[in-house]
């Protein structure tokens, strides 16, 4: 009994010391940025961005991280107008139409000088990086990767691919849109054929990539920049992205100011900083995406080895918002047969 009670007491004491460190840091001037967790991880862009911006503004930059881009939008929706976020960083163009519809975002009001494929004009969101979806394959398992989406769809059913579920995952939705932009109204037929090659459909990118690197399937849906990570961090060229004749589907990541953040002058300053060199130089080798603004440093040579899309495919945010549900339902009915 005594030992038990002792354990209880010490656990409670320990807990209060741990939890006491969690309170918010108070500072005169503060900017709160909501983002996804891989952005703020030790190896992500977050730490360097925080240091550089704080040096510039003489303020405190606080990151609040949630699981991913979709969770980010939901977090802001859950908090509503009372959100603590000044800036929301990490939505992609498939989410911006719905984000605007919440009325929780405010125009950035600046002239934005960015460089993304297809150009950029949006009065609310500002892009900070972009990447292309790609089928990444294991060169030790697959000697002749598909050269086009058509080859992937119609190819040997024994060469499996792991994809993500568009109901739960951003890359999953990306593949859905990719197939749609290539096949148009014939997309359901394409999915009916592709189904035979799909080993399994995971809830998110992590599970799919985990299965792929464990050798369960020779192909996975990922990004053209994935091989750069393996080349730079692991010094291996084993994993490569396949270039598709029809082009690659684009993902642009953006940030925006919330209605409550519009009152904070630091918010606008951050967006300008975001497209500038100190932020953009960090992006390629921490977020493994292409910089959307103006970096000063040249890209790591590994990025020159990456697949260059023959064509860039992208639906407008409005098209995605209008059709997402119907297209996902269509996908479901074909894949569930």
């Amino acid at each position: 009994m005594r030992t038990f009670l002792y354990t209880v007491v010490s656990a409670v004491l320990l807990a209060s010391t741990v939890l006491a460190g969690i309170g918010p840091a108070f500072a005169q001037e503060k900017l709160t940025v909501y983002t996804y967790e891989s952005f703020t991880a030790d190896w992500g862009p977050g730490p360097a961005v925080k240091k550089a911006f704080e040096a510039e503004c003489g303020c405190t930059l606080e990151f609040v991280a949630v699981a991913d881009g979709v969770a980010l939008l939901n977090r802001v929706r859950l908090e509503g107008a009372a959100t603590k976020a000044d800036i929301v960083l990490g939505l992609d163009t498939n989410l911006t139409a719905e984000a605007k519809a919440t009325g929780l975002f405010s125009p950035h009001g600046a002239v934005i000088d960015v460089n993304v494929p297809g150009g950029w004009s949006d009065d609310i969101f500002v892009p900070f990086d972009y990447g292309y979806f790609a089928v990444v394959y294991d060169t030790e398992k697959l000697k002749t990767p598909p050269k086009s989406l058509k080859e992937l769809v119609e190819g040997n059913a024994d060469e499996k691919i792991v994809i993500q579920d568009p109901r739960t995952s951003t890359p999953g939705l990306g593949l859905l849109l990719w197939v749609r932009s290539v096949y148009g109204d014939k997309a359901p037929e394409a999915w009916a054929k592709l189904k035979a090659k799909v080993l399994t459909v995971t809830p998110g990118w992590s599970e799919a990539y985990g299965l792929f690197t464990k050798g369960e399937a020779p192909m996975v849906l990922s990004y053209t920049t994935s091989p750069a990570y393996h080349m730079v961090a692991e010094n291996t060229e084993r994993y490569q992205a396949a270039s598709f004749e029809e082009g690659q589907y684009l993902q642009i990541e953006v940030a925006g100011i919330t209605t409550s953040g519009a009152k904070n002058p630091l918010a606008k300053q951050f967006l300008t900083f975001m497209t500038g060199p100190k932020f953009q130089d960090v992006i390629p080798e921490t977020n493994w995406m292409f910089p959307a603004g103006k970096p000063e440093k040249p890209l790591n040579p590994a990025f020159d080895k990456l697949v260059k899309p023959t064509k860039t495919l992208l639906f407008s945010p409005e098209e995605v918002a209008a059709n997402r549900k119907a297209w996902v339902d269509e996908w479901l009915s074909m894949m569930s047969k």
């Binding site: 979709v70 969770a71 939008l73 939901n74 929706r77 719905e98 579920d165 109901r167 739960t168 939705l173 189904k195 799909v198 080993l199 399994t200 459909v201 995971t202 809830p203 599970e207 299965l211 997402r324 549900k325 996908w331 479901l332 894949m335 569930s336 047969k337």
Partner: peptide, 27 residues
Amino acid sequence: TIVLTLGGGPRATTLEVAIYQALRFDF
């Protein structure tokens, strides 16, 4: 996660997935 990852495709879907879907993309 088990049902989606090991289920081999969206035919293997539980109500939990539908609930998650309703709150996540559809809110």
